[in-house]
């Protein structure tokens, strides 16, 4: 699936988008996989309360299932307007 990062999450991880082969069943499991990869991921995902997640461009929760998902995005709380 495609994993996208925005704002300071993108800056901390150092890329806007990557394709990841994963068998993670939920967003939390995906986060655990990413955290275990490298320090920059561990730093970006240190505090999940500071992050929001969208699955297939819909805001959701970290316990959301990933079955069939094509795109997961991680970002800080939004500041539009």
């Amino acid at each position: 699936m495609d994993v996208l990062y925005f704002a300071w999450v993108r800056e901390r991880i150092g890329l806007p988008k990557e394709r990841i082969e994963t068998s993670a069943a939920t967003v939390t499991e995906l986060v655990e996989e990413l955290r275990a990869r490298e320090e920059r991921y561990a730093v970006a995902f240190e505090d999940l309360s500071a992050l929001r997640v969208a699955v297939d461009q819909q805001l959701t929760d970290f316990d959301a299932a990933l079955a069939g998902a094509r795109e997961v995005a991680f970002f800080p709380p939004m500041t539009g307007g």
Partner: peptide, 28 residues
Amino acid sequence: YLKSRAPFWKKERAKDGDKWVAATEADE
């Protein structure tokens, strides 16, 4: 709603550095 539920993020660029604008409790 578009302040806290539409995927936009603001970054302020100033002479003394750049800073992401944090969402506020009041917005939520």
